[in-house]
Design a protein around this nucleic acid. Structure first.
Lengths: 266, 266
DNA sequence: TCGGATAATTGATAAATGTCAATCGATGGG
DNA sequence: CCCATCGATTGACATTTATCAATTATCCGA
């Protein structure tokens, strides 16, 4: 099931009204729209479609033209890429965030596919309208620029991580980074299935499983989805986070190319 | 030797004149400046410094503030990142291209270090002036946006490549891609040292060496720096290029995150 | 509450990749 | 022209990672 049929929706204005009334505030809070005049946002909303999808529906196939900028309003969306009969998770996006901004801006084919992981509500802004808004509203252009620069930096970090760390180091760094994002929480719950986590970090589920287990003796215990840092000093020494690889930096918190924040209710 | 001392250069205006007279045309040809009014470009040039560096000089240390946008005018510059006592080449930039645009735009620390590989001439534009130009000139802002989107997409490809292909596949894909960029040239000369190539593709030099050797039986012979595709059909079947991983796409030709084009004078 | 499906784990093994050391080869300076 | 240096290659070996198969755990719907 693809969303190409969307273009045939007959009553965009009705849909638009729904959008504006129910989610405009969430969307407006996006950094992307910070300080942007209402006229620009309204025009984008009016051009957009508000759609809900069941879990595990493909929204985008890589290689197709980027007709829409997507904004996740509810649910959870996985970005992934395939080749050689393999598949790799590139990011998991949670509300409220945009995804695949770059393809829309450049009017180029999507480089990633997207599928819902849960029932999800997605706002679809035609790329042409997006580009028009960028051209007409300087403030909006600046925001898009900033967002894209953040996405880029996030992807640089991802690539560095892949090239400079082995499996165990990537896992340790990921866990400690998550804890730090939660204010040095001593424990948290993994935000996504482990197979997704493994794919995101470029390893097999089996390998991730063993790596997680092996971290017990270095200060981080795993119990199902639950992560407990038992010896922070030891674990931090092992993970050896670096600011230029792991943040903290503004862009790290964006959904650019990352996984969702975990929950901390242990 | 770092370039921090640059800020103390006493006669920026003299330097500026040199810049404008001798290299303005090359620089003006950058997509970044396409259609941009002269006033904007002149202002940037006037604010910039024109510097030459010997080979193997560090221009940027990752983690330091992004005070300058860099434009390589002559020579060759390597972008790399380090962690865990390891080091990874992220890109090799050749004239005329900018590098580390994202950090300058966001006023954030560099995520990559840079060093010259040859005697190089680099134009340094203070990031503050860059941001001012973006804010004041809408066309320039659009160009920067496009450039950044291209860099992002190039980095997405790089990450996909790392996650979806093994060593041999990455090597084969790289070689075939280079040939294709040269109009399906049957042979070419590697544009950088093999150790850089290996590091760029996330493998050891030894591993690259063996991979290259093993490709002989699949239609691609290696002789020192010289690459000869002996059986194109066979080699293409092996490499299995995908448009969403390997282009062709406008951004692929940009220096965003790649290696230079090889030479084809066999 | 019970199955059935799917994810996670574990063990055994194979394959890929990295490391170390030695040698070869090209290149540039004295 | 020779030597010193550094990159490339090769072999032997260690380590990491993937694969395959079997089992266990977990979640969801009937």
């Amino acid at each position: 099931m693809s969303i190409d049929g969307l273009k045939e929706i007959k009553q965009p204005n009705e849909r638009c009204r729904v959008v504006i009334e129910t989610i405009a505030n969430d969307v407006r809070d996006l950094q992307l729209f910070d300080g942007v005049q209402d006229a620009t946002i309204l025009k984008l909303m009016r051009a957009g479609y508000d759609q809900s999808f069941p879990p595990y529906v493909t929204l985008i196939n890589e290689g197709t033209p980027a007709n829409f900028l997507h904004i996740v309003v509810e649910g959870m969306v996985e970005l992934f890429a395939g080749a050689n009969k393999r598949e790799a998770t590139m990011a998991v996006v949670r509300p409220v965030s945009t995804f695949i901004l770059a393809a829309s801006v450049r009017d180029a084919p999507y480089l990633m596919s997207a599928r819902t992981l849960q029932r999800s509500r997605v706002l679809l802004i035609p790329s042409a309208d997006l580009r028009a808004a960028i051209a007409n509203d300087n403030r909006f252009a600046m925001n898009v620029l900033n967002e894209l620069a953040g996405c880029y930096r996030s992807m640089v970090r991802h690539a560095k991580n892949l090239k400079l760390r082995n499996t165990r180091e990537r896992v340790a760094a990921y866990l400690l980074r998550q804890s730090r994002l939660l204010g040095n929480a001593p424990g948290f719950i993994l935000p996504v299935e482990k197979r997704l986590l493994a794919s995101y970090m470029g390893m097999t589920p089996e390998n991730l499983s063993r790596a997680l287990k092996s971290l017990a003796e270095d200060g981080c215990k795993i119990d199902g989805q639950r992560i407990i840092i038992t010896d922070r000093a030891k674990f931090e020494a092992l993970a050896a986070l670096s600011p230029w690889l792991d943040g903290p930096d503004p862009e790290a918190s964006q959904a650019g190319v990352s996984l969702p924040l975990p929950e901390t209710d242990l």
